[in-house]
Design a binder for these strands. Structure first.
Length: 594
RNA sequence: GCUGAUGUAGCUCAGUUGGUUAGAGCACAGAACUCAUAAUUCUGGGGUCGGUGGUUCAAAUCCACCCAUCAGCACCA
């Protein structure tokens, strides 16, 4: 029975390029996961988009003296390109500046309000008279009340690292024009997390054995500590308007609406494919499983606050049957962080490998292979170019690429470009054993993938490739062919069929090269669907680019190969390139002298 | 400071409810082989399991304290 699997990934801030940390932590894992489930025949919906709001974007826009719109559109288009280059197969990768997202976010706000989960509160905040607006904490500078440092920001002192309340700053001034801001009263809406505290604890206490320890322990602790209301509106102009009269100067705060994107993007996708109710398969069908792939800094927002928003919404938005509830996250497989050459990635210090650069110089599959091999599933890990080169050469090329090349090359040259037949003696013990071992991989690797143990899954698949090398060595068909070409042909048949199986088992990790292998083996069709960008025009006439995926022509199936003897092979070529050790040095040099 | 996670061979990681000489891949050393991108296969060396103390016949595994790294701590999301 096909399952409905919703794959959500963190919404990247559209204020800079993506780097390897983003890929390894939040974008590659869900793609591997989604590809597996599609092969398995499950109904997968994978959605996300660019976060077009948020302070970092307005900061960057101010710094470049352009509009926030210009900033986020620029990087949004880059994201689309990056995801296509690495084969991250979103059914929809949209952004949060769409009419649809505005409407859904406002509807959720209204539902929360109607259900009594929002309250208003008045606070004192800094207001700039020269600019005529309230200033976010980060826009205020002053002297740190704790250490006396003069350049402290309103939210944090960079010198002593203390978290600050801007009201406590000595001699506060605006970062923009140096003017002295004044305190003024302002009213905001708060999400009443306190009221939902018990429900959140119940949710986190049931059926969470499959959650990673870090995620569940942290979330439980967070919720047990007592949740307090959080402001969900801001005095800013860039963002989604509050859907109430008299709030023209306020916007929904980005943390409240960005996570709503998972829901609104699902709805947008359904509209795009002309099945406007289809999103309900993932949001209202109780058996559907929803996964949220994020980095560890995002855990509270996905494991606590987003469920709270869904609960507060009343959980039957856009649904006449009030007995139905919106699905809460089934799993939040958060990753730790990826470091680089022993140091934390840093955008400001330009200590990062940017995804577009990586795509320019390397093929996507080796990068996917390496990033998954070192994915920070349970702890921070370290990316080094030396290790990348080593794993590419000594593991990917040596064990798998070479296996494919030697067997396909041999079959192509010595058996007339066809899959040889099984000889009259049939299969012997060793033949049956290697086939059984690899076929069992559909079970074991499938289970690992379904449990989001993606590193272990890849390792298991590589183990089978190594076992095939052992099998081949035992059979030595290059020797046997001299005395008994028919018997050697049986071994080559078995090896080809094993490779045909491994092609599927490895395809979630290495989709591009497995497709090529698929063709070398003589198949005509596509293992996976087609990825493309598309421009959508909304009711208000505005247009936006999005990444889409059409799975209708995908022929790959997560099941053992039935490779036919006599199938015509295509002339093979190596799937991967060996990398010169100097590559590592060159890349490091490039980092140090950009 | 408070809360949580992580710390096992040079590197990346496994180690189920505590139980024989702590495992894998790669790297390293030796051998075999030559179909293959000098790839492959076999054998071998290599670890006081972050530290200290405790519980136990027995601890990488349980408890306490400590150290290191990372994250969160409510206006970054």
């Amino acid at each position: 029975m096909a399952e409905n699997i919703l794959v959500c990934t963190a919404w990247p801030y559209a204020n800079g390029n993506l780097h390897i940390g983003h890929l390894a932590g939040a974008y590659l894992p869900p793609d591997i996961f989604a590809r597996y489930h599609r092969l398995q025949g499950n109904n997968v919906l994978m959605v996300s988009g660019s976060d077009s709001h948020g302070t970092p974007i307005t900061l960057k826009a101010d710094a470049e003296d352009v509009s926030p719109l210009e900033i986020f559109e620029r990087y949004h288009l880059r994201f689309l390109e990056t995801f296509q280059q690495f084969g991250i197969t979103y059914d929809l990768f949209t952004h949060t500046d769409t009419e649809n997202h505005y409407r859904v976010s406002q509807d959720i706000f209204t539902a929360c309000l109607d259900n009594g989960y929002l309250y208003k509160k008045t606070e004192q905040q800094f207001y700039s008279e020269t600019e005529g607006r309230f200033l976010p904490d980060r826009y205020i500078e002053g002297t740190c009340p704790k250490c006396g440092y003069d350049g402290a920001r309103g939210d944090q002192c960079d010198n002593c690292k203390s978290l600050l309340d801007p009201v406590d700053l000595i001699d506060p001034r605006s970062k923009n024009d140096g003017s002295v801001p004044i305190l003024r009263e302002t009213e905001h809406f708060y999400l009443d997390l306190h009221k939902l505290n018990e429900d959140i604890l119940d949710y986190l206490s049931q059926d969470k054995d499959h959650w990673r320890p870090n995620v569940i322990n942290f979330s439980l602790q967070y919720a047990k500590g007592g949740l307090k209301g959080r402001a969900i509106t801001r005095d800013i102009k860039w963002g989604i308007p509050v859907p109430l009269p008299g709030y023209d100067s306020k916007r929904l705060y980005v943390w409240f609406e960005a996570v709503i994107g998972y829901f609104s993007a699902s709805i947008e996708w359904a509209k795009n494919v002309d099945q406007p109710e289809k999103w309900k398969d993932w949001w209202y069908q109780p058996q559907a499983k929803t996964y949220y792939f994020i980095g560890k800094d995002n855990i509270p927002f996905h494991a606590v606050i987003w469920p709270a928003e869904l609960m507060a919404t009343g959980r039957h938005l856009y649904e006449d049957d009030t007995g139905k509830f919106l699905n809460l996250p089934y799993d939040v497989p958060s990753n730790e962080y990826l470091n680089m050459e022993g140091e934390k990635l840093s955008t400001s210090r330009n200590w990062a490998i940017w995804a577009p650069d990586l795509a320019e110089r390397f093929d996507p599959d080796p990068v996917r292979f390496y990033l998954n091999a070192i994915a920070p599933e349970s702890r921070d890990t370290d990316f080094t170019f030396a290790d990348f080169v080593r794993r590419n050469n000594d593991e990917l090329v040596a064990a798998w690429g070479n296996l494919v090349n030697r067997v396909l090359g041999f079959a192509y040259k010595r058996y007339d470009g066809k899959v040889p037949p099984i000889g009259p003696d049939g299969l012997d013990e060793a033949d049956r054993q290697i086939l059984a071992e690899v076929e069992a991989g559909f079970e074991t690797i499938g289970e690992l993938l379904a449990a989001v143990k993606l590193k272990a899954a890849q390792e298991e698949a590589m183990k089978l490739a190594r076992a095939t090398n052992v099998y081949l060595d035992g059979k030595a068909p290059w020797k046997a062919i001299k005395e008994d070409p028919v018997k050697a042909g049986t071994s080559i048949y078995v090896a080809l069929r094993v490779i045909d199986n491994l092609k599927i088992l490895l395809s979630p990790f290495l989709p591009h090269t497995c497709q090529r292998l698929h063709e070398y083996l003589g198949y005509q069709d596509q293992l996976f669907g087609r990825q493309h960008t598309e421009s959508f025009i909304e009711e208000n006439g505005r247009e936006h680019e999005a990444l889409c995926y059409d799975n209708s022509q995908a022929a790959g199936r997560w099941e053992p190969s039935q490779l036919a003897s006599g199938q015509i092979l295509r002339k093979p070529a190596p799937l991967f390139k060996k990398l010169e050790p100097e590559v590592a040095e060159q890349e490091i040099a490039r980092l140090l002298n950009p």
